[in-house]
Simulated scan of single mutants.
Amino acid sequence: MPDDDPERGWDVAADLAVDWIRRECVEQGATGVLVLNAFGAEQQVPSLRRFAGEHRVTTPRASRDRAGRGTGPVLAYVPDEKTLDFAMRLARASSLAVVESVHGFPLKGWARELGAVDLTRPDEQPASLNPELAAAIDRLDFYKNNGFGDRFGKQQAEHILQDLRGAGILESDVILGALAARGASDRAVRNLRKLIDGLDRR
């Protein structure tokens, strides 16, 4: 559920995501999980509040036991990178719906990488990536194992990012989202964001 229309209220965005995830729960005969950055956010949106009353609710800070393992479809509401990573792990072998906040963690690259369905345009396919940018994301994915926290990983990432900036295709949101979709940890995504921000300040 993209955050791409300033006229669309959060209630509308949540309603569409809840409707979709409810259908997934029925089809799978499973209990859903609402994943939040922090408890209490669901109380501000009626459809989330109702969903939370019927299903499970958790956050990355809560015990994983609160949601169980392989419980069923997962709805992540305006996640940051840590919450998205947590929600993706919970949703393995099931379904995942995400309500985006571009002020939290933009999901354009994530959606493109996974071929996610845009609930506002269900018949449209995500736009394909620039081939040069896609190749660079492949290379960054290769070096992500240590979360871009070691000297070698940082150096390799900086070279790749500098090449992208030189080519005029350093799309931060797309890169970070695509890496998250490929299973990069929230630590790796944060470290890569710092490297990109550092280039922008030079």
Rank of each mutant, 00 (worst) to 15 (best):
C25E: 13
E124D: 12
L96N: 11
W10G: 01
L114T: 13
F39Y: 05
D150E: 13
A38V: 11
R8V: 13
Q162Y: 14
F51R: 01
L119W: 06
P46C: 11
I169A: 04
G109V: 05
D118T: 05
S47Y: 04
R8Q: 09
V78S: 01
L75Q: 00
S95M: 09
E27L: 12
L96Y: 05
P126S: 04
V18A: 02
V174F: 02
D19G: 00
G68Y: 06
V12S: 10
H103I: 08
G53H: 07
Q125R: 12
H55Y: 01
D138F: 08
L164A: 10
D150C: 11
R64T: 10
R92G: 14
T83G: 00
A97E: 00
F148Q: 05
R112T: 11
S172D: 10
L170H: 06
R202C: 01
A178Q: 03
P79Y: 00
R112N: 06
R56A: 14
E113N: 07
R165G: 11
V99N: 00
M1N: 02
E171N: 09
S128F: 04
L129Q: 05
F105R: 04
G29N: 15
G68S: 15
E7M: 09
I137A: 10
C25L: 04
F86T: 03
F152A: 14
L179I: 13
E7G: 10
V174L: 08
K108M: 09
E27C: 04
S94P: 07
D4I: 10
T31A: 09
T120N: 08
S94N: 15
L96H: 03
F86E: 02
E100R: 05
A157C: 15
S95Y: 09
L179V: 14
S128M: 13
D197Q: 09
L161K: 01
N191V: 09
K108F: 00
L16G: 02
A87F: 03
G109H: 06
D123V: 15
R182C: 09
D173W: 04
D4Y: 04
T59S: 12
A13G: 04
P60C: 15
R202G: 10
D15S: 01
R89H: 12
A30P: 12
E100T: 08
V12Q: 08
R92Q: 15
D65G: 14
A91N: 01
R193Q: 11
D197I: 07
R182M: 07
S185G: 12
